[in-house]
Design a protein around this nucleic acid. Structure first.
Lengths: 233, 233
DNA sequence: CAGTGGTCTAGACCACGTG
DNA sequence: ACGTGGTCTAGACCACTGT
């Protein structure tokens, strides 16, 4: 036989992508079923299935039982970011990580927070303000709220040596995350903390985590001016 | 038998996650091998394999042949963003999408661009400036550069009716993307285009795409003040 | 070298959703 | 109702890598 060794699911992915690109399978059309493809490639259906499942995960095709597999009109690409711990992010850049707690209190739960996290009326929260330094330069200002109903043992922590994010990741499991990126002009207080001038453009991330349906924590992270977040796909 | 129906790879994922969370399998330790787990769960090794492969994709564990599967010390979470076409993004918010070409020229390739894309010395580029509106309000200003060596047919396009991104997605395949998010204060020109005051904080995305090793295009996207980008995981 | 994950097979049954 | 993808099985061989 002239056959090369064996066909892998990756070969099938590559082949399918080629056919999508050169419009052998035009956008919006239905490609052959798994059994047919398995026949064509001389492999098991499971192999084709794995290739197609991954292409679907990556956003190139839509699969539906009975309806078949359809090439997406405009391929929805997914960006996959790694969200590093800030300590790792700073240390991997070669700088020394330093952490400082600015403030710790347990105020009456603000209404905006209750609404944002869908907290019950009697929920208590812990509020923390922290700074993370890269060497001697402020890198990130963290405004953190922790739901004490979900994480009662946080009340026992003073967070003077360890940042709340680091502590939470170690101690409290979570299942869901919502991230919001945006940009804002620094107000006077934040500008002073980050050592920038008032009005400087700051990159900000809001992060909410849940354990199943229970909200754990809300954090607003303000980065120094010039911060960039990059991802390769 | 008292056995429930059958065990699925998702059940195994959930079970394994539970054991990671409650530290039955502590961070940094090695979990049992696939054969052993398959025995315990009474299923085929392939089923365990699929569960573990997905957990590895999601960043909870590290797998190495011979070494076994190790629970990550600090679980690296991956954020999966969908990068929508701007037309879809605007229209799905209920607003009307409108596009305007501001400028189109083929200048001498700037050095910073040549460096950024690793272009050859004689590479020609097409430069476009465009505005994308949501209703009557500017939504995004796009500063786009296209490598004419890789995409010669772009030179035939006037881009008066269709934005370069939309055209490129339809016409030119790509394999790799790099996205960089950052924040900047609007300069006078950009502020006028977006209808904001000078110095306003703008959310910006830089996007580079390649087809294999060939750079296709570089775009810098400036969003209106107040833009937010959210992802749920 | 030996153990672990990586992949493939051939067959089977199931669940969903279209026609 | 029935065709398509979704999943599982039991077994096999392979590839990488720690020892």
């Amino acid at each position: 036989m002239i056959e090369a060794k064996k066909i892998s699911y990756q070969d099938i992915k590559a082949l399918a992508l080629k056919r999508i690109r050169n419009k052998t399978w035009p956008p919006g059309s239905i490609m052959p079923g798994e059994v047919e493809l398995a026949g064509e490639f001389g492999c098991a259906r499971a192999t084709v299935n794995r290739a197609m499942r991954e292409l679907a995960d990556e956003g190139f095709i839509d699969r539906k039982r009975k309806a078949g597999t359809r090439i997406k009109a405009s391929p929805t690409r997914h960006a996959k970011f790694t969200i590093p711990l800030i300590r790792d992010e700073i240390e991997s850049s070669g700088a020394t990580y330093r952490y400082a707690l600015i403030r710790r209190d347990t105020p009456k739960t603000p209404d905006w927070l209750r609404a944002r996290l869908a907290l019950s009326l009697q929920a208590d929260v812990l509020h923390l303000k922290c700074l993370h330094y890269a060497g001697s330069k402020p890198f990130q200002f963290e405004d953190r709220w922790i739901n004490l109903d979900a994480v009662p043992k946080a009340a026992q922590q003073n967070f003077e040596m360890t940042g709340p994010n680091e502590w939470l990741v170690q101690e409290v499991p979570f299942t869901d995350v919502e991230l919001t990126f945006s940009s804002m002009n620094a107000d006077l207080q934040t500008a002073e903390l980050l050592g920038v001038s008032e009005g400087a453009a700051l990159f900000t991330i809001e992060r909410i985590t849940w354990l199943e349906k229970r909200p754990i924590t809300f954090a607003k992270l303000y980065y120094f001016s010039g911060y960039q977040m990059t991802s390769r796909l």
